[in-house]
Deep mutational scan, measured.
Amino acid sequence: CHSECLGNCSQPDDPTKCVACRNFYLDGRCVETCPPPYYHFQDWRCVNFSFCQDLHHKCKNSRRQGCHQYVIHNNKCIPECPSGYTMNSSNLLCTPCLGPCPKVCHLLEGEKTIDSVTSAQELRGCTVINGSLIINIRGGNNLAAELEANLGLIEEISGYLKIRRSYALVSLSFFRKLRLIRGETLEIGNYSFYALDNQNLRQLWDWSKHNLTITQGKLFFHYNPKLCLSEIHKMEEVSGTKGRQERNDIALKTNGDQASCENELLKFSYIRTSFDKILLRWEPYWPPDFRDLLGFMLFYKEAPYQNVTEFDGQDACGSNSWTVVDIDPPLRSNDPKSQNHPGWLMRGLKPWTQYAIFVKTLVTFSDERRTYGAKSDIIYVQTDATNPSVPLDPISVSNSSSQIILKWKPPSDPNGNITHYLVFWERQAEDSELFELDYCLKGLKLPSRTWSPPFESEDSQKHNQSEYEDSAGECCSCPKTDSQILKELEESSFRKTFEDYLHNVVFVPRKT
């Protein structure tokens, strides 16, 4: 048989008469490798580009789960590009990614509803959504962080984005990388972005840091009482949809009607710091009717980097990364020049730590249904340095008659930039024990000054392991946590139920 035959053949030295091919099969003959313009397919066939392209389009058009959109890589027609490569849609070739590779997620039936953290986790790592997304989240724990972890990498949506009755959302900033909504599939009414009845939605994105392009379709905003109209108009300008909307697409009466839409800028007039305090004062603000001013709200939190936005980490279910302080308005003076500047002394802060701070007014709604208010920009203030805590785990070892090696770990709280350490030492008198000992005694162990690591005695271990207080009263049991108490109650309830079950099964009433 021919060298490319495997198993047997019907005619000697003829690659077209093989029972099976050793390498690849091409047009009725066995070959060692697939010549151009053919590609290896499933490690035994040679196919042309049209064959591989037909497989790709067949799966793409069917949208069946589990099928493969075949691509070409290293002269092979394979189910998908290997790690580190992405497909070129024009020629199906796998090309190296520039940075992290995109991950295209194809949605069944063309859309997916995100109504819980669990459903959001199914899209973790996706960068391109081939379909439409509907966000409908009523509640949950730590929602802002969970949504950002699972949806934060999405850069492109081919269909539309719909935010509907998501009472738990305060902001859409968890879509931190969303840059493009194509609108290839539109919501009824030709809408590519749809926001309806979101009672706590206050911000779409921080438009000073976020760009969003909507290729096709219109915007729809109705019944978002805490979303200011200025935020919607800003989205029109940034996304390129200005002029597409009709009169009733953006409701003037049901958007922002319960919001404090600040239209003035508060400026800080005085800032002073110490290692654990920050004193702030800002310019006074009074609405047209000074009785509408209820006070100020001061927001602050630790910020290692200057990239904080107002609604980071917030949701309507209680999660809030900001510390909020309510401040009463100052006494009002008739003389504008003698107006008191409101302020606040922030206490209990960490030394040498940068804080993000902003302040906003708290006002009631005027009778004319106009909203007044003022808010400052987010500023960054760093507390002063102070003395560091003591170095940890000092170790001293003498390696000769004239040297001592000293080692330690950095302090747990540096409280500033540590530039150097101060080492103090003092000579001590020799131990009298060394002169009084009889060095001729056998088995004498000389006193040693070398360091030995501390260890816990058996008594201390027994005390720590004991669940009861000892007789001397030195140790006591740790208080039980809520989960331990709940577990004990469940076990007790189970024992009672099981005992009742045994009584009912074992003891049967005697027939009379």
Results as ranks from 00 to 15, higher is better:
residue 172 L to E: 03
residue 205 W to H: 13
residue 306 Q to N: 15
residue 288 P to N: 12
residue 271 I to R: 01
residue 113 T to M: 13
residue 251 A to H: 13
residue 114 I to G: 02
residue 199 Q to A: 08
residue 256 G to Q: 06
residue 141 N to I: 10
residue 208 S to L: 14
residue 195 A to N: 12
residue 125 G to Y: 02
residue 279 L to S: 06
residue 362 L to Q: 00
residue 113 T to H: 12
residue 342 P to C: 05
residue 248 N to K: 12
residue 129 I to S: 01
residue 195 A to I: 14
residue 179 R to K: 12
residue 258 Q to V: 05
residue 303 A to S: 07
residue 286 W to H: 01
residue 105 C to T: 02
residue 163 I to L: 00
residue 304 P to N: 13
residue 334 N to V: 08
residue 290 F to M: 00
residue 191 Y to F: 12
residue 238 V to T: 06
residue 335 D to L: 08
residue 400 S to E: 15
residue 349 L to V: 05
residue 215 T to Y: 10
residue 237 E to G: 07
residue 253 K to I: 14
residue 411 P to S: 04
residue 127 T to D: 09
residue 351 P to S: 06
residue 223 Y to P: 03
residue 394 P to H: 03
residue 345 L to F: 14
residue 358 F to L: 04
residue 248 N to I: 11
residue 207 W to Y: 10
residue 313 G to D: 10
residue 390 V to P: 15
residue 306 Q to K: 08
residue 287 P to E: 00
residue 170 V to T: 09
residue 338 S to A: 12
residue 167 Y to T: 06
residue 298 L to W: 02
residue 119 S to W: 02
residue 333 S to A: 09
residue 157 I to E: 06
residue 256 G to Y: 02
residue 397 V to G: 15
residue 346 M to F: 07
residue 348 G to K: 03
residue 332 R to W: 11
residue 171 S to Q: 11
residue 155 E to V: 04
residue 283 E to H: 10
residue 299 F to W: 10
residue 212 L to V: 12
residue 126 C to P: 00
residue 146 E to Q: 04
residue 361 T to D: 00
residue 315 D to I: 11
residue 256 G to R: 02
residue 231 E to G: 14
residue 242 K to T: 06
residue 295 G to P: 02
residue 379 I to H: 05
residue 118 T to Q: 00
residue 315 D to Y: 07
residue 267 K to M: 12
residue 269 S to I: 15
residue 144 A to G: 12
residue 301 K to T: 03
residue 242 K to W: 08
residue 360 K to C: 04
residue 158 S to G: 09
residue 352 W to E: 04
residue 343 G to Q: 11
residue 355 Y to M: 05
residue 108 L to V: 13
residue 232 I to A: 13
residue 388 P to A: 06
residue 252 L to P: 14
residue 243 G to R: 12
residue 233 H to M: 02
residue 246 E to Y: 11
residue 161 L to E: 01
residue 252 L to A: 12
residue 131 G to P: 02
residue 206 D to C: 10
residue 382 Q to I: 13
residue 379 I to C: 12
residue 307 N to M: 10
residue 265 L to P: 13
residue 155 E to T: 09
residue 154 I to F: 00
residue 315 D to M: 10
residue 247 R to D: 06
residue 365 F to R: 11
residue 146 E to R: 15
residue 209 K to D: 03
residue 117 V to G: 02
residue 189 G to K: 03
residue 336 P to M: 03
residue 169 L to V: 15
residue 104 V to T: 10
residue 324 V to Y: 07
residue 198 N to I: 04
residue 211 N to V: 10
residue 296 F to T: 00
residue 226 K to V: 06
residue 319 S to T: 05
residue 256 G to E: 06
residue 385 A to L: 12
residue 392 L to N: 12
residue 290 F to A: 06
residue 312 D to N: 13
residue 330 P to N: 07
residue 232 I to N: 03
residue 158 S to W: 14
residue 217 G to E: 07
residue 160 Y to G: 04
residue 250 I to S: 04
residue 369 R to W: 07
residue 325 V to L: 14
residue 311 F to N: 11
residue 320 N to V: 04
residue 126 C to S: 01
residue 148 E to R: 15
residue 371 T to S: 06
residue 188 I to K: 07
residue 409 K to F: 05
residue 186 L to D: 14
residue 287 P to F: 01
residue 131 G to N: 01
residue 290 F to L: 02
residue 166 S to L: 05
residue 215 T to E: 10
residue 355 Y to R: 00
residue 312 D to V: 12
residue 228 C to A: 02
residue 297 M to A: 02
residue 181 I to T: 01
residue 134 I to S: 09
residue 198 N to M: 06
residue 110 G to Q: 06
residue 384 D to V: 15
residue 115 D to V: 15
residue 382 Q to T: 14
residue 146 E to S: 03
residue 251 A to Q: 08
residue 122 E to L: 14
residue 146 E to T: 04
residue 209 K to W: 07
residue 342 P to L: 06
residue 254 T to I: 12
residue 363 V to D: 04
residue 242 K to D: 09
residue 372 Y to P: 06
residue 278 I to V: 14
residue 306 Q to P: 15
residue 180 L to H: 10
residue 301 K to H: 06
residue 324 V to C: 11
residue 359 V to K: 01
residue 392 L to T: 03
residue 299 F to S: 02
residue 374 A to F: 03
residue 385 A to V: 06
residue 382 Q to L: 07
residue 409 K to T: 03
residue 331 L to N: 13
residue 119 S to P: 08
residue 187 E to W: 13
residue 237 E to S: 05
residue 235 M to R: 03
residue 367 D to H: 06
residue 158 S to L: 15
residue 322 W to T: 03
residue 126 C to I: 03
residue 364 T to N: 06
residue 277 K to Y: 15
residue 393 D to L: 08
residue 373 G to F: 06
residue 281 R to Y: 09
residue 235 M to P: 02
residue 234 K to M: 15
residue 301 K to D: 06
residue 241 T to V: 08
residue 158 S to F: 14
residue 259 A to S: 06
residue 176 R to N: 06
residue 206 D to L: 07
residue 156 E to K: 05
residue 205 W to G: 11
residue 336 P to I: 03
residue 108 L to E: 06
residue 273 T to M: 13
residue 214 I to W: 04
residue 311 F to L: 08
residue 339 Q to G: 11
residue 161 L to R: 02
residue 204 L to H: 05
residue 339 Q to M: 09
residue 237 E to K: 13
residue 128 V to Y: 07
residue 186 L to T: 09
residue 320 N to A: 06
residue 219 L to V: 09
residue 305 Y to R: 07
residue 279 L to V: 10
residue 324 V to P: 03
residue 216 Q to S: 07
residue 385 A to F: 04
residue 337 K to Y: 13
residue 359 V to S: 04
residue 104 V to Y: 03
residue 169 L to I: 13
residue 146 E to H: 14
residue 156 E to L: 06
residue 112 K to G: 06
residue 248 N to E: 05
residue 262 E to G: 02
residue 210 H to L: 12
residue 331 L to I: 09
residue 154 I to Y: 00
residue 147 L to T: 03
residue 340 N to D: 13
residue 368 E to K: 10
residue 108 L to M: 11
residue 136 N to W: 08
residue 328 D to E: 14
residue 407 K to L: 08
residue 296 F to R: 01
residue 131 G to T: 01
residue 193 F to V: 10
residue 199 Q to G: 11
residue 300 Y to C: 15
residue 151 L to Q: 01
residue 304 P to I: 11
residue 353 T to H: 13
residue 172 L to T: 14
residue 281 R to K: 13
residue 206 D to Y: 05
residue 253 K to D: 05
residue 331 L to D: 11
residue 361 T to A: 04
residue 106 H to L: 07
residue 249 D to E: 15
residue 130 N to K: 06
residue 295 G to Y: 02
residue 198 N to S: 10
residue 402 S to P: 11
residue 144 A to N: 05
residue 323 T to Y: 03
residue 214 I to M: 14
residue 335 D to H: 09
residue 360 K to F: 00
residue 126 C to N: 02
residue 387 N to H: 11
residue 263 N to T: 11
residue 332 R to N: 06
residue 107 L to N: 11
residue 345 L to C: 05
residue 299 F to V: 06
residue 192 S to D: 03
residue 113 T to Y: 05
residue 241 T to E: 06
residue 252 L to R: 08
